[in-house]
Every structure is written in structure tokens, then in C-alpha cells.
Design a protein around this nucleic acid. Structure first.
Lengths: 158, 158
DNA sequence: CTCGAACGTTCGTGCCACTAACGAAGCTAT
DNA sequence: ATAGCTTCGTTAGTGGCACGAACGTTCGAG
């Protein structure tokens, strides 16, 4: 097959990792621009959404839910606490932990940011049909679930 | 099926921009790790591949082919020139430009890096079927082509 | 000739993923 | 209990990447 005598190998284009990087940059810019209009970054949204979805949690737990590093989580929570969107109280049951709670103001904040993020998704996926959007979401979910920190390597050959 | 009136909005998971970012990080790490073993970064590969595909070019032209910023291109070319993988000569026809040429050593370098990158793609796409890999590549291509710097905005209301 | 644009370059910015190290606190196991 | 492991929050720092500002040089068009 492909008796095509292409002298140029044409290897560069259509390299998945490159496409992924490009698409991610575009997506991050779309989301970033909109959130910046409200003085927020995507982490703020992620943390607020995680809290709204699964309830109060420790910082480490939030790290796992959102994928944000524990180190970076500190600054994000500081900002969210400064603006009264969350509360950070010591956990009486485990004095190492803080319990992060979403305030009513934080909940409204989430509603606003969610609208912006949703709108950004629409623009991001504009060139795709609804079916393609679902398929893309599915494929990306498989990829991100498969590639997790320290992944088992099941089929370690040889 | 699941007319379930989920009280939890469950908005966080499956946000395309987040999935995209996660997959891109995984992909970048896979590629980065392998290239780092040879002391290279993905930009080196991109530049070498662009040169091999479409021939010698100016730095600005390479910027467009690879998506690397003109500012950052300088350092990359410096490194590639230091290791004799490319040559940077003034363009006799346009004295503003440099003509970047792939050396034989650079071509062999590309072959090695290409093997590493290809292997990384395999591992990246491991959990997908061949059909899904093609579909993903297609969808990502559409997205990246659509979202280009200063995109026309066809439906600019008002 | 003048003006605007493109080119290569330097410097600086901001975001993000990630590491290292730390003190404090909890969880075993002997 | 005490010794040793781990978890947690925190600080500080690193490196890559995408991007912007500005400047001198050169080209091209009016």
C-alpha cells in the first residue's frame, strides 16, 4: 500500500503529542482570558468546583481531586481565603489537616466562573459536531486516566 | 437510562479544556523524558524535523512551521548550532535573514530523536485502538487548525 | 526619501508542573 | 512508650514553555 513516492517523509505534522500541546495551549488561553476578566485563574475554578461537587475536604484531598500540586495549592487557597470564597479551619479530628469549606460567596463565585468556563468550552469545540465533542471527551478521558503518576506498567515486556 | 436527577451537578470532570491540559502534560512528560535521555528537548526535534521536511529556511519561517516563538527560536538554534546539527548563514538575497541548514550530523540526530518521539507516541496512545488514535489525531488537527493566532471570528455579532 | 513592515535578538513576565526540605502530627509495631 | 514510618501543610526554588516589549538592521512600497 501507499506506493506514494513521497520523497518528503512528512513526519512532523500530525504527531499526537504536538497536537495535544497545541490544542491545550489554545484551550488554556480561551479559559484563561475569560477567567482573567474576573481576576481568576483556572485553579480557582477547579478548587471551587471540587468543593461544590464533593464537599469540604483537606488540602491534600483537594490536591488529588483537582490534580494541583500540594505546593501550589497553598497559594491558591490563600487567595481564595483572602477573598472570602473559602474558609480554612483546623481539623479537630486530625490536627495535621485543614478543613476547606466553600462559603456562600464562594458558591456564587463558582456560578459566575462556571458560566465563563462553559462558554470557553463552547468556543473551543466550535469546529466540532456534538458527536465529535463527545468522542473527543471520551478519548481524552481514557488517556488521562491511563497516564497517571507512577503508572503500573502492566505489560512490561521481556 | 440514568434519568437520575443527580443532585450533585458533577460539572468538574469531563471539562474538555481540563482533559486537554492533563493529556498534554502526560504527553509532554513522555516525550520530554525520552528526549532528555539524549540531552534534547521537543523544540530541537521540531526544528530538525521542519528542516528535513521542507528544507532550509529563515528563522521566522521556522517559527511559523514549528509554532515556536521567534524569541525562543534563537536559543534553540544556538544550541543546535553549537552541537553542529544545523548551520546558520546570512542570507545573501536578504541580509536581514539567516538561512538555517540541516547538516548531515543533524539529519542523523533527527533520526535518533524521531525514534524516541515515535516510541513516546506509542506509549501515549497505548490505551486506544488504532481507529481511536486516528480519530483523536483528526479531531485535534481540526481544533489546532481552527484556533490560530488572530482567528477570523466569522460570527462576530452586532 | 520616507515610512512601514519584517527580521534577528535581548530581556523580562507569567503560568504551570514539579522537587526538596522542613516541622508538626498521626499511625503502626515491637 | 518509643522508635520509625507516613501524611499534612508550608516555603522556597527550578525548569520549561508561551508570550510581550523594545531595538537596530534591512527590505520594500509609495
Amino acid at each position: 500500500m501507499s506506493p506514494a513516492p513521497e520523497p518528503t517523509p512528512a513526519r512532523l505534522r500530525a504527531i499526537p503529542s504536538r497536537l495535544l500541546a497545541g490544542a491545550a495551549v489554545a484551550a488554556d488561553r480561551l479559559v484563561g482570558e475569560r477567567l482573567a476578566a474576573e481576576g481568576a485563574r483556572k485553579w480557582h475554578f477547579a478548587v471551587l468546583a471540587a468543593l461544590a461537587e464533593a464537599g469540604a475536604a483537606s488540602q491534600a484531598e483537594l490536591s488529588r481531586r483537582t490534580g494541583i500540586y500540594r505546593s501550589d495549592m497553598v497559594a491558591v487557597l490563600n487567595e481564595l481565603a483572602d477573598t472570602e470564597y473559602i474558609r480554612r479551619d483546623p481539623d479537630p479530628g486530625d490536627r495535621r489537616r485543614n478543613v476547606i469549606t466553600l462559603t456562600p460567596g464562594g458558591h456564587r463565585r463558582l456560578e459566575r466562573l462556571d458560566a465563563l468556563v462553559t462558554d470557553a468550552q463552547r468556543e473551543l469545540l466550535a469546529p466540532l459536531t456534538p458527536g465529535q465533542r463527545d468522542e473527543l471527551t471520551r478519548l481524552l478521558t481514557v488517556l488521562t486516566e491511563y497516564h497517571r503518576p507512577s503508572h503500573p506498567r502492566p505489560h512490561d515486556a521481556k
